[in-house]
Write a protein that binds this DNA or RNA. Structure first.
Lengths: 149, 149
DNA sequence: TAAAAATACTTTGTATACAAAATATTTTTA
DNA sequence: TAAAAATATTTTGTATACAAAGTATTTTTA
């Protein structure tokens, strides 16, 4: 009884991802921030001042999407944009104190939630899970590169 | 050098899922159908005539989202709705011949793509990947159930 | 059995993903 | 160096996710 790879790998991965997003959004609701906003903010915090272009690569967001997410983060005063003096087409994105504080608060909070989620899973299997995750991603990256000529 | 579970598991899973969706959408473009429409159509094909409620559970779509996806599938004449004679609030969803034909065409096509994606990955590791995928999903399901009281 | 609660579906509003077009600016090329 | 190409960002349009409210119908309850 061999299941299609579409269902076994594709659909199952997408379904897990949605559930992760759903549960994390649930826990982040009290912080008035979404999973994707969090992922951008955390990436910015690790990166320091960067252009939108660079941030979009590091946070794996396309530029149009990042524009909207930054608009929201800026509205809530977690980040601010500054014109790049070296290239007037671009902005340098900065995290505010308020933003850094949020990262410090939310980071450990999320770790606790993840620990509960992976609690009963064998460490070695989890290692392998991560390896396969990366192999799949890099295989798809190759195909995506090829698709875009 | 231990990375946060947020990044190692959460972000990585979500990132993989987006890339899967991106590459499959790319290949499905010539069929004028999206990944999510495909997933609903395939589920319907496996299920036979079912209500929207049941289909939404099987395809892991909430009802509002499914409404829009069925609108599109219906517009392209892959499915049609029939009033449920036993409960006038609900619809029975049916696949058309055109829809079945598409499933027969796209199914094997996607399998080829997935085979290329998983090609170089060790079978045993892929097994473990799937197991962990399911464990994570079921752990999150428990938490989601609890979250909704 | 009439009122209240629950259910199936749709609608509305906000957030995200992403392709394609638009704008402003910088870099390359003829 | 003027024109063309490339780049960074925003805008527009479509699809999806999901919460919350709305509608029609069915089930439960007092």
């Amino acid at each position: 009884m061999s299941m299609s790879m579409d269902k076994a790998i594709g659909s199952a991965s997408v379904r897990l991802s949605k559930k992760i997003t759903r549960i994390i959004n649930y826990y982040l609701k009290s912080f008035n921030i979404t999973t994707e906003q969090w992922s951008v903010l955390r990436t910015l915090d690790e990166s320091g001042q960067v252009t939108q272009k660079v941030l979009s690569e590091r946070a794996d967001k396309d530029q149009a999407t990042l524009t909207k997410i930054l608009d929201l983060l800026e509205k809530h005063e977690y980040v601010y944009r500054v014109r790049n003096p070296e290239d007037r087409r671009s902005f340098l994105i900065n995290i505010t104190d308020r933003g850094s504080q949020l990262v410090e608060e939310v980071g450990p909070y999320l770790e606790e939630i993840y620990l509960k989620i992976i609690n009963d899973i064998d460490k070695d299997q989890l290692e392998i899970f991560q390896e396969v995750l990366h192999s799949l991603e890099s295989n798809i990256n190759s195909q995506l590169d090829e698709a875009n000529k």
